[in-house]
Amino acid sequence: MKKYLPLIILALLAVLPLTGLSTYMLHIMILVIMWSVIGMSWNLLGGYCGQVSFGHAAYFGVGAYTAGILYTKFDLSTWWGIPLCIIVVALFSVVLGYIVLRLRGPFFALATLASGEVMRITAENWVDFTGGTMGILIQKRTWVDKTWYFYIILLIAAVTFFLVKKLIESKLGYYFVAIREDQDAAESLGINTTLYKTVALCISGVMTGIAGAFYTSYMGYIDPHVAFALHDISIITIMIVMVGGVATFWGPFVGALIMVLLAEFIRSMPGLGTAYQTFFGILLIVIIIFLPNGIVGDYKKLKRLVGLGRATS
């Protein structure tokens, strides 16, 4: 049963648009699935390989801009951005990885944070190429209806999920976990840590880039503040994984579901709209203090807590 759970959930999600959901609900589901793709790819690098990146917006933005620039400069459909960004983001990750992966712990975290910011500032200032703060507007949307977008992002998510699962269950996954637990010990056992960290970063970056390219096609507008946002992308990505569960297969999905719904809920409340970051911050603090491994990771603990609450009441 457990073995088929991913397939069952995939099938359930696939029939979702047929149930006649409103466009708004479909939009929310697309966002949830897109964020779980980003969360899963962050989880591969951060959760399994232990390299906590604060700059996944860099990969997201490079992916998004690859698609956008294809449209503005070469007059191609933005969908070509998805295959192309695999190459572009992979190259970008290797170059960036060369710089940041030699660092550890907090240094790595901050170097990645800076990398995201550098990309944003570059995109803002390199006006000829990126359009600067004006951003890129895709005038011709592929579909008005959201159903196809939903299936495309679902396909991307399914591929990401099975890729991450296969990777983690392979020898590579054990290397990643070994690096996370003790990098020096892993190195002394003959694991080429730099190589495997670069591999993790590349896969993670490419997956995030694909989500970015999808974002351009779906939203039809990107600018440096959207695509390379520190809080709204890099930090939210971390939060999704932290809330859902670090180093779990389902964590990113659960996290994305909770975060997107929460964000929409808070934004729709009159007078509370601007305060959503406060709620996110408080949620993050509470999660870190009480459920450091996230909802999926600390599921037993959570169940016990809830159970206790029920027993006493």
Binding site: G46, G47, G50, V52, F54, G105, P106, A109, R180, H231, I235, I238, M242, V246, A247, Q277, T278, F280, G281, I282, L284, I285, I288, I289, P292, N293, G297
Partner: peptide
């Protein structure tokens, strides 16, 4: 917890608030 970077992420949360 699994990730030792929790404290850093916590300060991010504080900053956000």
């Amino acid at each position: 917890s699994i990730l030792p970077e929790n404290q850093v992420i916590l300060t991010v949360g504080i900053g956000m608030v």
